[in-house]
Nucleic acid binder design. Structure first.
Lengths: 215, 215
DNA sequence: TAGATTGTTAATCGATTAACAATC
DNA sequence: TAGATTGTTAATCGATTAACAATC
């Protein structure tokens, strides 16, 4: 049964389904059952069937799921066909890595411009894009109406920068800064990446197992 | 009441508490109530009190929580005082950014060595550490017994690399590759960072709001 | 048809929120 | 003491798992 609102827990799992199904497709697997997929992914068959049925059943009883159809359907649900235009703000260590390392095109985006304040970085070529001076951002946004901004800037400048970007019409953020955009602007779409939090979580896990071993 | 096992949902929130409490402390805030904190963090006072009581109550009725004590307590629970020794495998775009951008020391770790296969990168200095040839990894591990490995390598080499690292005695991974270590080695601690998944999730959110606007 | 596997409902489990007595 | 706010129990909500009838 097709559901109007897909629960956050299901949404969070969609990219992972997409990845595993892409791998299977690359391997030439034509069909797969919820049971087989659950073993590969380390979940339960029940959860897989529940999840997939949020968007209407495209499995076949007694057979399973067609890998290609399923993968393409998930791609459509995620909106990966959109090629939203993205601007990257901040071309320091992290911004540079994002520009060079992330396959934007495969994930529904096109990286269309990079901006920084640092004179020594401006003019540099990153993955085919020349880093521009941040003071050209306003004009660029007026002209090209980018859809999302990738924030690779420190927390203290992220506040005023997101304010500006929202004024310039941007309503979605891939946020690597520790500034909490979603708190102040509830209407915009924000995906936060808190690498520091992730590392601290690892520290917690490691500490836990250490303690277990010492008991 | 102190709980033996802290639920995953609470653990995931701990680094965020730590961040907000650190900010408050930096601002000179001495005490805070669950109500005030909930407004700042965008949660409920009830959840905050529930969460904090997993490790035993260190609030004071009628007063609130002492910010410094609370922050230090969370730091201890996370194990941030440990300074676990970390080796970084893969000094490409992403590895480079990790080495330069992440404050390992504040998050319970010390970055002690960086390894790569690429001759053009080996010898380079990153944040005070010279990139070494990957064939020196085994000796390094024997000698220095590092605690965790940060994997900034492609999926196809991640499989054999994690196998080796586990043989060399490493039992915790900060994993930026798409290889699923935890599936094959359930005993090791793994924290995955799937930047691609995060970007696809943003694509989904953006697509959702677009659809809403067109209705 | 028989076997397999889905789609879907019901049962269980866990996490969040609400309420309030305890107490500083 | 009176007011405020915690610690904790109970109620609600959501997510996962189990079960099984529908059906390819």
């Amino acid at each position: 049964m097709r559901k109007e609102i897909i629960s956050p827990s299901v949404v969070k799992r969609l990219p992972r389904y997409y990845r595993f199904l892409s791998d299977l497709l690359a391997k030439g697997t034509g069909k797969i059952s919820s049971g087989e997929l659950s073993k590969i992914m380390g979940t339960t068959a029940s959860q897989i069937r529940q999840d997939l049925n949020c968007f209407g059943g495209f499995g076949q009883q007694g057979y399973g799921y067609n890998v290609e159809i399923l993968r393409d359907e998930i791609a459509t649900i995620l909106g990966l066909n959109h090629k939203y235009s993205a601007v990257l703000i901040g071309a320091g260590n992290l911004g540079r890595a994002i520009a060079n390392h992330i396959a934007f095109t495969e994930k529904g985006f096109t990286l269309s411009a990079i901006f920084d304040v640092d004179e020594t970085i401006i003019g540099e070529n990153m993955n085919g894009i020349v880093v521009e001076n941040i003071d050209k951002l306003k004009d660029f946004c007026k002209k090209h109406k980018p859809d999302v901004a990738v924030l690779c800037i420190p927390k203290n400048v992220a506040e005023s920068m997101s304010k500006q970007l929202i004024e310039y019409g941007i309503n979605a953020f891939w946020n690597f800064s520790h500034y909490d955009i979603a708190m102040e602007y509830p209407q915009v779409s924000v995906e936060n990446v808190h690498l520091g939090d992730s590392l601290m979580t690892l520290c917690y896990k490691k500490t836990l197992t250490e303690e277990k071993e010492n008991n």
